[in-house]
């Protein structure tokens, strides 16, 4: 029954035989040991498992591993570049955008997708873009500021470049 898939995760190519019913999030966590992607619900409502598949934010519990065959996947573990934090990671730390840390990877990945589409979002746009991700700790106040921090930093970096 197992089906062979080939995926690139955080720049590294993998090939595995997986049970067709394996969710992408289970594949990442159980097979690749990338436990930074979390499971917070069973109805695709919480967003804790958000990752990027071919550059787009996807709740990895809504996708079967076999559907990701041939895709390029990025998880929270792949966000830092050679030890340099991604501006979003830095933003969440600087602005205290996390407390327990459980929703954080999903928040960061969903925010990455937002900033890719809209590099200079308003508070309202940030709140709308993140409404698929639950946080029970921060009241979202500092998450909004974290994303704004990152947006500013990225735009500065691009000006320099």
């Amino acid at each position: 029954m197992a089906k062979k898939i080939q995926v690139t995760v955080n720049g590294k190519a993998y090939s595995h035989d997986v049970d067709p019913r394996t969710l992408l999030v289970q594949y990442l966590r159980d097979v690749l040991g990338l436990t930074g992607t979390h499971v917070g619900c069973d109805t695709s409502n919480c967003g804790a498992c958000t990752i990027l598949v071919d550059g787009q934010a996807v709740k990895s519990c809504t996708l079967l591993a076999v559907q990701a065959d041939g895709s390029e996947v990025k998880t929270i573990e792949g966000m830092a570049d050679n030890g340099t934090l991604h501006p979003l990671q830095e933003g969440f730390r600087e602005e205290h955008g996390l407390q327990c840390g459980f929703c954080t990877p999903g928040m960061i990945m969903a925010s990455a997708d937002l900033l890719e589409r809209n590099p200079n979002p308003t508070e309202h746009e940030i709140r709308e873009a993140l409404e698929g991700n639950f946080c029970r700790c921060t009241g979202y106040h500092n998450i909004v500021k974290s994303v704004q921090y990152a947006a500013k930093k990225i735009s500065k970096q691009e000006k320099v470049a």
Partner: peptide, 21 residues
């Protein structure tokens, strides 16, 4: 003071119970 614990959480290196095998 910025949080000491954040480093592991923002890099996906937190270790929650279900992560333990």
């Amino acid at each position: 003071v910025k949080r000491v614990e954040d480093k592991r959480f923002i890099t996906g290196k937190g270790r929650y119970t279900d992560d333990i095998v």
